[in-house]
Amino acid sequence: MQLDEYSMIFSKILYSTFPEFEQYQQIREYSGLNEAYLIIEIPSPSNNDNVLWISTCDEEITVGFDWYHTHFGYSETDEEDFKIAIDHIRDIVEEKIAIVIVKKNDSWVRSSIITDKDLPLLNEDETIDIKSWNGTYFN
């Protein structure tokens, strides 16, 4: 089973930037096709339950951390998408951004990123959890 071309190109760029991520690579086959895509799940150094995950399924890069994820695949070129996705991954692992998870009665309501220490406005009975790669975003 061979990676599709999109996944092969992105993986070379990703691993040249973050060579330590390659050990977490999983290859998943598209159902009924002789091609595959990447799933990479990297445990956070601060908490193994907080996982940074990257997928190239359907020629779209998806990057997620904890209860947050976003998609890259809408630029004019794949190369531009790759660069934006790599920059976003770098922002997560360098703690330039953190993830805010809003809950109400312990149930997920929404997730977003923050780039500074300004927290989102909360509705009544909502609480937040803040997650960052090293667990030191507010320290």
Rank of each mutant, 00 (worst) to 15 (best):
M1D: 09
M1G: 14
Q2K: 10
D4Y: 03
E5H: 12
M8E: 15
F10L: 08
L14K: 07
S16K: 14
S16L: 04
T17A: 06
Q23T: 07
Y24R: 04
Q25W: 01
R28G: 02
S31T: 10
S31Y: 09
G32W: 07
N34F: 05
E35V: 00
Y37F: 10
L38V: 09
L38A: 12
I40N: 00
E41I: 00
I42R: 01
P43W: 06
P43K: 03
S44R: 03
S46N: 05
N50M: 03
N50L: 12
I54C: 06
I54S: 02
S55F: 10
S55C: 11
S55D: 10
T56H: 06
D58M: 11
W67E: 11
Y68H: 14
H69A: 07
H69T: 05
F72Q: 04
G73R: 11
Y74S: 15
Y74D: 14
D78L: 09
E80P: 03
D81I: 04
F82A: 02
F82L: 10
I84F: 12
D87Q: 10
D87S: 09
H88Q: 08
R90M: 10
D91M: 14
V93I: 13
E95Y: 08
K96F: 13
V102M: 10
K103G: 03
K103D: 13
N105R: 13
D106Q: 05
V109F: 08
R110H: 05
S111L: 03
I114Y: 06
D118A: 09
L119K: 14
L119F: 13
L119E: 09
D125A: 13
D125T: 11
D125I: 04
D129Y: 14
W133M: 05
N134K: 14
